[in-house]
Amino acid sequence: MFELGQLRCFLAVATERSFSRAAVRLNMTQPPLSRQIQLLEHQLGIRLFDRTTRSVVLTAAGRAFFIEAQDLLERAHSAAFTARKVAQGDIGTVTISFVSSAVYEFLPNVIAEGRKSHPHINIALREMTTAEQLEALRLHRTDIGIVRSPLDQQGFGCECLVREKFVLAVPREHSLATQRQVTLRDLDDQPFIIYALSSWQPFHELMAGMFRSAEVRPEFVQHIGSTLTILALVNTGMGLALVPESATKIRFDNTRFRDIELPPGVLSLLYLVWRVDNDNPAFQVMLTAIRKSVHTLPNTP
């Protein structure tokens, strides 16, 4: 099979219509150039040029091969260029999985920063629970996970990215909506919408443990797995809820958000997790971009 170097020689001769001029163009002497053309014709089993003492003219087969040879050489250059860009992490695809609450503030910043700094990297997004994300990472189905629980397992990297306080979501007509100062004790006997254990285990356990330690007993009227749904229920007057501060960006006409005094350590946390053996160059580039984007947010570590 012919080589790319032979194609370059052929295209130079075909373009210049002269072996001597083609040799100058390729910065080589004429004998090795003629030898490369002869080898190419031998390998193809056809004559590419009609040669006379005064001219070099493409044969009919040579004219057809000229078009294909140009395309092959361009594709080879493109392949090399693409391979270098992929190796540098300048192009490629990164799959980021995330918990739903990350879309309120954190994830939009990540996407904006990623597109700004690396516009040729395709970011594929997958909304999953924390448990689903960890399984997807193990199966190499995602590159980066944004989860609620830390992962301390060999072969995985993990770091806390966002720490934010909880705020109290209150129906507009509720007495706490206008109370000057709200404490945890104010939630005793109140109808309360808590995160579901099945889908939001970190938040459920955090809040349930906090209430037990403080000996505060809200009336749990619903166990829900979505912050958006929780706020929609608060908006109907069904009960109160504690939600991450970033959720205040979700607006409902009949919902008010109030600061509340909570015990130290009761925070909404987001963790970044990944496989340490991930060899996708674009993954490392996007990991850096995510860290950079987080520094623009309040309440980051």
Rank of each mutant, 00 (worst) to 15 (best):
P202R: 02
E164L: 05
I123C: 03
E132L: 10
V162L: 12
R180T: 15
D189R: 15
Q133Y: 03
C158R: 04
D143G: 08
C158K: 04
D189F: 15
L134P: 00
S175L: 10
R185D: 06
L134G: 00
I144S: 04
A169C: 13
V167A: 05
Q201E: 14
H174E: 05
P150Q: 11
S149N: 07
P119C: 09
A196Y: 08
R185Q: 12
E132F: 01
A131Y: 08
L134I: 09
Q153A: 15
T183L: 01
A177D: 06
D189V: 05
R148Q: 14
Q181L: 15
L176R: 10
G114W: 03
I123A: 02
A131T: 06
N122T: 15
V162D: 00
G145I: 01
F203V: 12
E113A: 12
C158A: 07
F203G: 07
E173Y: 04
S175A: 09
L197T: 05
T130D: 07
S117Q: 06
C160L: 15
K165H: 11
F166C: 01
A131H: 06
P191L: 08
C160Y: 06
E127C: 13
S117Y: 01
K116S: 14
D186S: 09
L187A: 07
G145M: 02
Q154I: 14
L125T: 09
V167L: 08
L151S: 05
I146E: 04
A136K: 05
F203K: 11
I193V: 05
F192A: 09
C158D: 01
R180G: 13
L125D: 06
Q153Y: 10
T130I: 00
R148N: 05
P171T: 01
E159W: 09
F166H: 02
R185E: 08
H174Q: 05
H120I: 06
V170T: 13
Q133S: 04
F192C: 05
E159D: 12
E173T: 15
G157I: 12
H140L: 09
N122S: 14
L184M: 08
